[in-house]
Design a protein around this nucleic acid. Structure first.
Lengths: 201, 201
DNA sequence: CGTACTTTTGAATCGCATCAAATCTGGTGG
DNA sequence: CCACCAGATTTGATGCGATTCAAAAGTACG
C-alpha cells in the first residue's frame, strides 16, 4: 500500500460519495474559518496555505494549538457538537470542507474507509511524535540531522519547500538555518544541492 | 463520555477479551523491548517509566523517534509485518503487551472498540499538535504559559509529576524551568503552590 | 526590467545550557 | 526517634548558540 502523507493523497483516500459532497474553500490571510463554540458543521482538509487553530488565553493572549500547512484539521471535532477552538488562515489558503454529519456516517458504515482513516491517524501520530522529538533538540544542526534522518531515506532528503519555510518547520529563524547549513557543508557533514540534502557522516 | 488520556484509562477502553490476552512486562533501564526488523508480535502500552523508539542514523548516531512515558507505542506497526524501529527502556518501566494479531482482529470486528480506538488516536493527535506548538516557542516562560493554558483549565494546571520531569516535557533544563517559575512568581504573573500552577495575567 | 521573495552575511544581544554546589525533602533503616 | 541517603529543588557563574535587526545579493516571474 502506498504511503499516504500529502493532503492530496489523503483526499484521494476519501470515498467518492463523500468527496462528492465536499466544497472547496478559499481563504485570504486573516480570514476566519470557524469560531470556538460554533456548531461543528464541517471537517476541513488543508490543501495549501496555512491555517491556525487558536484559543484565547488569560489576559487575551492568543494560544496557538496547531498550525496546519496540509492535512486535516478539526478531526477531533468529529466527536463533539461544537468547536473547542477557533480557526483562521494565517496565509492565503485552499481547503476542502466535508460535511461532518456525512463524514461520521461514512466512517461508521464504510469499514474500508474506517480502516484507512485509522491508518491516516496512526501515520499522523507517528509523524507528530518524530516532530516533537526533533523540536526537543537544542541546536539547529541536531534538528537538521534529525529531519533528514527521519523524513529522508538513507540520509538523503529532498525538500518540498523553500529553506525559509523549512526553517519555520524546524522552529528556527531562517538565518540560523542558513548558517547551520553552511557550517555543516564546510565541515563536510552535509552536501546541499538545491533542495537535496545529503548527510555524509 | 469521560476523557481518555492516562495509560490506565486507555487500558480500560480495551475490550475485556483482548485485555485478558495481555501480558505484563517489566523492563530495567537499558533493556530492549524489540528490535528494528523484528516480526511485529505485540503492541505495547507504556504504564510507567520511559520507553524510547530509536533508529540508527548515519555514522551510528542514534535517532530518537519517540519517547513515551505513558500510552501506546508501535501502534503504527499494526499495519506492518516488522518493526520500523527499535525500542528500549530508558528507565525502569512497566508495560502491557497485547498480541498484535488479536489486536488487529478485535479492531476489525468490534465496531465499538474500533470507534474508541479512533477516538484515542484523534486525541493523541490533538495532544501532540499542541505539544509541537509548545516546543516551537522560544522561551521558557512562553512554554510554561502554553502548557498551563492548554493542559490546565482556566489558567490553572495541577502537575502530575515533579518539576524536574516537567522540565523534560518542556524540553528545558530543570534549572531554566526553576528560574523561569521564580521570575514569573516575582512578577506576579504566576502563582505556584506545590504542584498547582495558576496564571494570574 | 522591475518587483517580490529567498538567500546570504554581519554585528549585537539575550536566554538557555552547562557545570558546580548548597539546601531541602521524603523515605529507610538502625 | 534520629541519622542517613537519594532525589528534587534552588542559586550562582560562565559560555555558547540562536534571535534580532540590518542590509546586500541572488532569483523567479510577470
Amino acid at each position: 500500500m502506498p504511503t499516504i502523507s500529502t493532503a492530496l493523497e489523503i483526499a484521494n483516500a476519501i470515498p467518492a460519495g463523500l468527496r462528492a459532497q465536499s466544497r472547496h474553500v478559499e481563504l485570504e490571510a486573516g480570514e476566519i474559518l470557524f469560531r470556538i463554540g460554533g456548531k461543528v458543521c464541517n471537517v476541513y482538509l488543508v490543501i495549501s496555505g496555512e491555517v491556525r487553530l487558536v484559543r484565547n488565553g488569560l489576559g487575551g493572549a492568543e494560544i496557538t494549538l496547531q498550525r496546519s500547512r496540509g492535512g486535516f484539521i478539526a478531526e477531533a471535532s468529529l466527536e463533539s457538537k461544537s468547536y473547542h477552538c477557533s480557526a483562521f488562515a494565517s496565509a492565503p489558503s485552499k481547503l476542502m470542507a466535508f460535511p461532518a454529519k456525512e463524514f461520521r456516517e461514512v466512517l461508521a458504515n464504510d469499514s474500508e474507509f474506517c480502516c484507512k482513516w485509522q491508518s491516516i491517524l496512526a501515520r499522523e501520530v507517528r509523524k507528530l511524535r518524530a516532530q516533537c522529538e526533533r523540536l526537543g533538540l537544542r541546536t539547529a544542526e541536531e534538528r537538521i540531522r534529525h529531519y533528514i534522518e527521519t523524513e529522508g531515506v538513507h540520509g538523503v532528503a529532498e525538500l518540498s519547500m523553500t529553506k525559509k519555510a523549512w526553517a519555520t518547520d524546524l522552529s528556527l529563524t531562517h538565518e540560523a538555518l542558513y548558517r547551520a547549513l553552511k557550517k555543516m557543508s564546510n565541515e563536510g557533514s552535509l552536501r546541499v544541492v538545491g533542495c537535496r540534502m545529503e548527510l555524509s557522516k
